[in-house]
Simulated scan of single mutants.
Amino acid sequence: MTNRNLRLLPLLAITLIVVAIAPTLLWIRDHPLLAFSFFERGTYNTEISYQITVLMIVLVVIAIVAAMTGKAGLSYLNLRNRDGRIRPEPWIGLKPSDSDSWNNVGRNMAVVITLVTAVVIYFQVIHGERITLDLFPGLPLIVLFALMNAFAEEIIFRFSFVAVVHRYGYSPYVAQGLAALTFGIVHYFGTPGGIPGVLMAAYIGWLLAKSMFETKGFFWALAIHFLQDVVIFIALLMK
């Protein structure tokens, strides 16, 4: 077997693992392996059961990536690396000036993406519905679920590809493309869903994989995804 084929095997392996996990997450949503009854509202119990189950899958993914990439791959879990030069991507709206970096563009993207998510969620989920604000335990749980979900999906759909692609010397575009493709397709059945959900999730998948590569860290991917998920869980759990 040639060196090229040996380099290709880890990439194929992690791609197959993520492709297998994606529909599994949808199945677990309706058939949780764990069933907790911590709260009076069934929706809270369903969500915490799902999130804890997925967290176990995430730990397995991290272990697999660690075995494939070692410290080089695990370094992308660093939350302190927040800055880095931005490679221009005019076709997705990224046209940074010479003075721009992830430290300031990350904040701007977080605001814009969260607002766009709020608009899409309003028309897909909230429009015509009545929202009931459950201050406790609703709001603390929304924050917890958003953080758990963002962390899990960033590990599965971004970190896995970025770490392997970096370790085996492939172009960052390979990880960004795989992240966009897998995250986009699975969101056809998610929230936001349908074609708008696919397009938005594919864009986010591409952008957040890019942020990991260029900052050599996890911060902006987690932060941007977390803010999105806060909006989504407010809509889903406060109906």
Rank of each mutant, 00 (worst) to 15 (best):
A66F: 04
I92T: 07
V186T: 06
A66K: 05
L139Q: 10
F226R: 08
L181R: 05
E153F: 00
G93L: 05
I224R: 03
L79M: 13
I232D: 00
A175Y: 01
P172Y: 00
S99R: 11
H31A: 13
S101N: 10
E40L: 13
A66E: 06
K210Y: 00
R41G: 07
L74I: 08
H187M: 08
V58K: 01
T69S: 08
I142M: 07
T15N: 07
W91S: 06
D30Q: 12
A175G: 04
L236W: 13
L8G: 07
I17F: 03
M212I: 11
V164N: 01
I121A: 03
K95V: 15
A66S: 12
F136L: 06
S49N: 04
N81M: 01
Q51I: 13
T117Q: 06
I121T: 02
F36R: 02
M238E: 08
N108C: 12
L236Q: 05
G106C: 04
Y50C: 03
G217F: 00
P96V: 04
Y203T: 04
S101Y: 04
L12V: 06
G190E: 08
R167N: 05
I28T: 07
R29W: 11
L236S: 08
L147Q: 04
G70N: 09
M148Y: 05
W27C: 14
P96K: 11
I155H: 05
L79H: 11
A66P: 02
E47K: 14
I232E: 00
Q51Y: 15
T2K: 10
G84K: 01
A202I: 14
R7V: 04
I195R: 09
A163Y: 03
L236I: 14
P196H: 10
L33C: 07
L26N: 09
G138I: 12
T69C: 11
F161Y: 06
H225L: 12
F36Y: 13
N149D: 11
R87Q: 12
L139F: 15
L74G: 02
M68H: 03
V198D: 01
G169Y: 09
G73A: 04
A150W: 00
I14N: 05
P10A: 10
P140M: 12
L141I: 14
L55M: 14
G177H: 08
Y168K: 03
S211I: 00
V230D: 08
N3T: 13
A221N: 06
L135N: 09
E214A: 06
Y188L: 12
R80W: 11
A118R: 12
L34H: 07
V119S: 11
A152G: 14
P10T: 11
T2A: 10
V186K: 05
